[in-house]
Amino acid sequence: MAGVFDRIAGAANTGEPELDDEVPLSEVDADESCTDGSGPEPTEERRTAQKVREAVQELLKYGLLEESQKPNLYRSALAHAEEVASILEPLDLAMGIDDVRGLIFVTVRQAGVDEEDDWSHPLVRRQRLNLEQSLLVAILRQHFIVYEQESGTGASLAQVAVDELIPQLQVYLGELGSEARERNRVITLLDQLRGHGLVSAPDAHDRAVIRPIITHLANPENLQALVAWLRAHLETGATPSSESKCEDDQA
């Protein structure tokens, strides 16, 4: 009985190719489809560089990159700004860069939209802050601006103590009747704003770091209008409701 090698040698002598009976035709077809140029090509080389992918994923996850927190990803996004922008563009998103403060953040493209009520984006949810949260944002932004004026733009260690914020909130919101309740109100509000990335958690000395992104998320005109509205209510003797909604929106 002729062996495999004998059959191959015989086929070579006759000039007729002979397939091994033990090889399924489906496998032969698959091999041919990969070599004739019509099959799938390896795509690893065509993919976006891993460091760029990681930077974009971080941007989409948290909405920002801080050089002080993620220096490698920040530098990758900055070095490949055009590539990152091209990835965000089909999503109607754009990349904001504040290289002085070491910030890269995501913004929403709203070309042609004039009214706030027309806000619409399938991936980004607008969160409207209540009165107390917006007031604290205005106070924190003032602290941060003063800190930058004293330490220079780009300084990123602006801190504020809970005890400093209590009397400033009392001016507009009134007193709660006890120091414990006052402190609890401030700490609760700070924790809520921490979820927006505006401050850090208070440390052991009850001091919170104000994040530089507050300069971009807090609209100065809206904050000034909020403070003016509160002062007007105080002059008339009315007590502002904590359930009122202000115009300071966070995307």
Score class of each variant (00 low, 15 high):
residue 120 S to K: 12
residue 137 V to H: 01
residue 32 E to A: 07
residue 182 E to R: 07
residue 230 L to G: 04
residue 162 V to C: 09
residue 141 R to M: 12
residue 41 E to A: 14
residue 68 S to C: 10
residue 159 Q to K: 15
residue 46 R to N: 11
residue 7 R to Y: 04
residue 173 L to A: 14
residue 231 R to H: 13
residue 24 P to V: 08
residue 135 L to P: 00
residue 242 S to A: 13
residue 225 A to Q: 14
residue 226 L to E: 01
residue 40 P to D: 05
residue 98 D to W: 05
residue 121 H to P: 06
residue 229 W to Q: 12
residue 236 T to F: 03
residue 17 P to D: 07
residue 153 T to C: 11
residue 137 V to P: 00
residue 112 G to D: 04
residue 185 R to K: 12
residue 28 V to P: 00
residue 33 S to D: 05
residue 68 S to P: 00
residue 204 A to W: 09
residue 21 D to H: 11
residue 214 I to F: 02
residue 37 G to P: 05
residue 24 P to W: 05
residue 197 G to D: 04
residue 118 D to Y: 03
residue 1 M to L: 11
residue 30 A to W: 00
residue 195 G to S: 07
residue 59 L to N: 02
residue 182 E to F: 04
residue 191 D to C: 11
residue 158 A to H: 06
residue 86 S to K: 15
residue 44 E to P: 00
residue 73 L to S: 05
residue 84 V to K: 06
residue 193 L to F: 08
residue 200 S to Y: 03
residue 167 P to H: 11
residue 106 V to C: 08
residue 212 P to M: 02
residue 128 R to D: 12
residue 42 P to V: 08
residue 63 G to H: 03
residue 56 V to H: 01
residue 120 S to H: 12
residue 90 P to Q: 09
residue 52 V to K: 02
residue 137 V to E: 09
residue 30 A to L: 07
residue 135 L to W: 02
residue 49 A to S: 13
residue 164 E to W: 05
residue 170 Q to S: 14
residue 28 V to Q: 02
residue 75 R to C: 01
residue 157 L to Y: 10
residue 144 F to M: 03
residue 72 N to R: 14
residue 17 P to T: 08
residue 16 E to H: 15
residue 249 D to Y: 14
residue 150 E to W: 04
residue 42 P to K: 07
residue 181 R to F: 11
residue 1 M to K: 10
residue 147 Y to C: 09
residue 135 L to C: 07
residue 105 F to L: 06
residue 40 P to I: 01
residue 58 E to G: 04
residue 108 V to F: 00
residue 240 P to D: 06
residue 57 Q to G: 12
residue 70 K to S: 14
residue 4 V to N: 11
residue 111 A to W: 03
residue 134 S to V: 01
residue 105 F to K: 00
